[in-house]
Structures are given as structure tokens and as C-alpha cells.
Amino acid sequence: MVTIIKKLAVIAVCFLIIDQAAGLFLDLCRDKSPDGRYYKTKHSLETSDEDVVIIGSSRGEMNYNPFVIEDSLKVTAWNASRGGQGLPYFHAIQNGILNRYVPKIVILNIEGSMLEHRRFLAEAGFLRPFYQGHPEIQPILNEISYFEKFYNRLRLFSYNSSYYYLLRPYLIKGLDGRREDKGWKPRDGRIHEIFLRDTTEIVKDTEPLNEGAVAEFEHIAKTFKEKGSRLFIVVSPNYQVYEDNTPTINYLRNFAKSNQIPLLIHSNDTTMIRNPDFFIDPDHLNRQGSTYFTKKLIGEIRPLLTASL
């Protein structure tokens, strides 16, 4: 028994040495990342100081053109959205930003059924490489599991499965979002013909709202408002999907009204949702669509800003 314990101890020590050494290397790769998702997240959490911040998932990342916002409103803009993420990621990014400064304007992209689904908590594990250096995001990641605070002491665990996207920007630049695009991921091209259709699906969800998602959304929205940011909640368009009467949208209408937060719904904008030239796939706008949509959105936001001044 003693022999086993001794050998297990030696293996554990060796493993921990390798783990910490690998951690140092991976931290360096993360901090010096030339572009891509880790550069973007680091900027969002640590160095962003833009007047306008866009927060969302992949729709947020692709559908909002920061250059249009900058030109139209004469401000600086940063798109902090991240594909495949949900409210916990938004919350973590919010904490990272508000820990340092208060953006003048925040555009929060919410999907038409987002508050009916799970919170995408596990997906926020993407932020684990930033866990140790960012106490403000730890409570959110700690919700993933009770043991998260222990797991993240292992650097290899924090970087689990991140290596491809962490190292690729050093070899090939611009594949995962270019630095000069300010967080936006424009996509060129047109929706594939297999997705083309003549009819529009009118979404009539009857799913109940997810209490956890609603609570997290309310926290995010109210915190931005309390801190003094002008918050705009936006529902962006999907190809041939008309969403205007989902539990999420109905809830957003009530919430926006009672909290005096502008809600801009574009999932019912038939000029956009029926135009395949605007889309790269059923859920995301292409460069042309994104630019058109952002211009249209700013056209709605500008008078609201002026009115409040």
C-alpha cells in the first residue's frame, strides 16, 4: 500500500509540474494572441474602452457592424459578442467591462426564444482561461459545477480543448475574426440554395420562460441601466422566420415598458427576413445584410438618444 501511495504521489507531482509549466506557456499564447476569439475576449474583459459595446451570441457577432455605428454616431464601438454563447457569457462580459468603465451605449442582442431555453451555462466554460485572472467572472463560472473553483487550479483544465483556436492565429491570421474588424465577424456570400424557400414561418412558441434565464437577463439589463449605460435590447432578423409573438418577445415588451428600456424588434421586419441576399445562413446576416441592418437600427436608436438628451 505504501508503495502505491508513493508512486501515485510521484505521478501527481510530475503531473502538476507539467500542468503549471504548460499553463505558463498557454497564458503567454492567450495574452499575446494576434487576433481571434482569445484576443477578442481579452480585449472585452481587460482593455476595451469603447463608447458602444455590442453583446450577443453569434447573431450579435455577425449582425452588427461597428463601423456603421462609429460613422453614424461619431463614437467608438466594440462588438464583444461570441458565437455559441448565451446569457452567462453576456453576464461575465458585463462584469469584466463594468469592473473598469461604463460604456455610453450597450446593444444587447436577444434571440426571439432565448429566454425559453437553457442558459448555455456550460458553454461559458469558454471563459475558463480567464478564470484565474478575473475574480469578477468566477461566480458565473462557479455555477457550472461546485468543483469548478478546484478544477480551474489545473491550468490544463482551464485551457481544455482550447489549443486549436489558441494557437491557430499565430499560424494563420484573420480566420477567427480580424483585429481591425473591432469584434465583428463579417461573412461574405449568400445563403445556400438548400435553405431558400418562398414561405415565411410564423413562430408561435408556447414554451414557458426559463426562470433562470429571465433572472439573469433582468440582472444584466438592470445593472447596465443602474450603472448609467444607455441600453438597447434588440431582436435581430432570421431568414424566413417571423418572430413577434413568442413568450420571450412578449416578456421583453413588458420588461422594456416597465423599465423604460428601448426594445427594437427586427425579427418581424419582413423586408429583411424575406430577402435571401442579406443572409449567409438562416440565422445570420452576411456583410451586406449586417451593414443594412445596423444602419436601420442606428436610424431607430439616434432619435431615442437625442430625445433623452
Binding site: 510521484v10 505521478i11 510530475c14 478544477y151 481544455n160 489549443y163
Partner: peptide, 19 residues
Amino acid sequence: RFATIVFLLVYIVGLGVFD
């Protein structure tokens, strides 16, 4: 044997799926 064990541990922690 020792190197293999440590490699597997590193691989599991670094590339395993823990969902």
C-alpha cells in the same frame, strides 16, 4: 510506463470532455 501514465493524465485533463 511512468511517462505513458503522465502523458495520459495530461491528455485527459487537457483534451477530455468533462460534461
